[in-house]
Design a protein around this nucleic acid. Structure first.
Length: 461
RNA sequence: GGCGACGUAGCCAAGUGGUAAGGCGGGGGUCUGCAAAACCCCUAUCCUGGGUUCGAUUCCCAGCGUCGCCUCCA
């Protein structure tokens, strides 16, 4: 089987052929101006799954993700709060890690910052000027879009589209409405740097081109980011990179994640309609949220719905139940579980090979879980536990871990055990009403009792 | 206005030119003292109208609806 990845540039699923070893992957990270919302969680979780699956397939992956730690919004917000912009950015960078760690988003190998790449950015801007792709004006340095023949290829927009859609105030000094700032002159803000063109700071798009070049090289395998960055950000990034290096393609596979909608519109900091990831995690376990985010293909739009998360919670319970299955057969030479096991692996791989189809992969795992439950009475303990370990390892490729709600450290445990003991005696005495009352009352306290042939077991509900 | 995406059961959501995964919910059953969990069975003809085809939910056109990008944005 071959892994195929949809490439935004061509709009097609293409067989994955890495440039070399390791596979190079760049993900457009956050501008840490506010706390990460569910849109961020969706994107980073899906990108994490892409990386995990590549590693599962045996590729070594070098994953780089930036932080745009200085930009207009950060400066504005910090100034309004009377704070230092860099300090502001650090605070929300921490907020990012706090929440993504809980969601098991694996850390990138490096997190370059704009503020740590100024010399490289200045070098690259100068190179574009020298190459005839950029020019200085009284407000900064601009990229000359007309000098890059393929401009618009990624987002599928022509020069005419650009002109027609130009709603931004026309800058008389720009040669073309499509041109954008590589360097912004600025003598007022606290965070500026000297440059050959005057004091200022980088434009947004150039940072990614520079960081990719410095950390991964002139051409990379995979570039990820939200669909809202396709234009102009990625279009410009591509133009800057290829104009500077004259190497094509800059990126082999452009992967864009769908956007998260809330009440029918895009969730965004700027719209003020966002639900923070941390907020959701106050009452939704991280693995449940992760399962929810992965229940939609990465390229699709996710319509955020608390009700759907609740449904996912129930689905997660079902996954947990698979781990409670026990092999009961002593002579157990039932090999049906082996058959199911290899079928599950195959279905999982096929789904993920097909453009990282996590929803389908999850479906395959639910099938596998049902098979484990069904076959466990006729299988040996060893076979069941090895099936379960494959089950958890495949879930692990999706970054989903199975955790029973923790009861071990609970002070109430001895008392619950005691009640269960008393109830056992009541049941032996056929005192059903009292026994049921204990069960119901414990249930109201989120302690679930199940009477099995081997006795009563209880767990946190 | 330009460009693009999407519209699948009560809900979430995959997918295919030959009558549609999975999860939640609902109904029935097995098991159980009764439950719970688990297991088994049932629960959709794929927005509308044309067209192409032996045959379309899947391809093409139009319409309706929703969303995104064109400005900062994951």
């Amino acid at each position: 089987m071959t892994l195929a990845i949809t490439n935004t540039l061509t709009g097609k699923k293409e067989p994955f052929k890495p440039l070399g070893d390791p596979v190079t992957m760049y993900v457009c990270g956050m501008t840490p101006k506010d706390r990460p919302h569910l849109g961020h969680a969706f994107m980073f979780v899906h990108m994490d799954v892409i990386r995990r699956y590549l590693e599962y397939r045996g590729y070594a992956v070098r994953h780089i993700q930036n932080f745009t730690d200085i930009d207009d919004k950060i400066i504005d917000r910090a100034r309004a709060a009377g704070r230092d912009p860099l300090d502001w950015a650090r605070e929300y960078t921490e907020a990012y890690f706090e929440v993504m760690d809980r969601l098991h988003v694996r850390r990138a190998h490096e997190y370059p910052l704009v503020t740590g790449n100024i010399p490289g950015i200045i070098h690259d801007v100068q190179e574009l000027i020298d190459g005839g792709h950029a020019y200085p004006t009284s407000t900064g340095v601009y990229f000359d879009a007309a000098t890059f023949e393929d401009y618009g290829a990624l987002s599928g927009r022509t020069a005419e589209d650009g002109a027609a859609g130009a709603r931004i105030a026309v800058d008389e000094e720009k040669r073309d409405p499509r041109d954008w700032a590589l360097w912004k002159l600025d003598n007022e803000s606290s965070v500026t740097w000297e440059s050959p063109w005057g004091r200022g700071r980088p434009g947004w798009h150039i940072e990614c081109s520079t960081m990719i070049r410095r950390t991964l090289g002139e051409q990379i395998d995979i570039h990820g980011g939200g669909a809202d960055l396709l234009f102009p950000h990625h279009e410009n990034e591509l133009a800057q990179a290829e104009a500077a290096t004259e190497r094509h393609p800059f990126v082999s596979y452009w992967t864009h994640t769908g956007l998260v909608l809330t009440d029918g519109e895009k969730m965004a900091h700027s719209l003020g309609n966002f639900t923070t990831t941390a907020d959701v995690l106050t009452d939704v376990p991280p693995d449940v949220l992760r399962l929810y985010l992965l229940s939609v293909h990465y390229r699709s739009t996710l319509q955020f719905s608390p009700a759907a998360i609740e449904q996912t919670r129930a689905g997660y319970e079902r996954l947990l139940a698979v781990m409670r299955a026990k092999g009961e057969s002593v002579d157990g030479d039932c090999n049906e579980l082996d058959v199911e096991l290899s079928a599950a692996r195959q279905a999982f791989d096929a789904a993920m090979d097909d453009d990282f189809n996590a929803p389908r992969a999850i479906g395959a795992l639910f099938d596998f879980g049902r098979a484990i439950n069904r076959l466990s009475p006729a299988s040996s303990a060893a076979d069941v536990s090895s099936a379960q370990s494959v089950f958890t390892s495949l879930l692990g490729v999706l970054g989903i871990e199975l955790h029973e709600p923790d009861a071990a450290s609970d002070d109430a445990t001895p008392f619950i055990d005691l009640l269960v003991q008393v109830r056992r005696q009541l049941r032996e005495a056929r005192q059903w009403e009292l026994a049921d009352t204990i069960r119901d009352d414990l249930g109201a306290l989120d302690v679930v009792l199940e009477d099995t042939p081997d006795g009563t077991v209880w767990r946190r509900g």
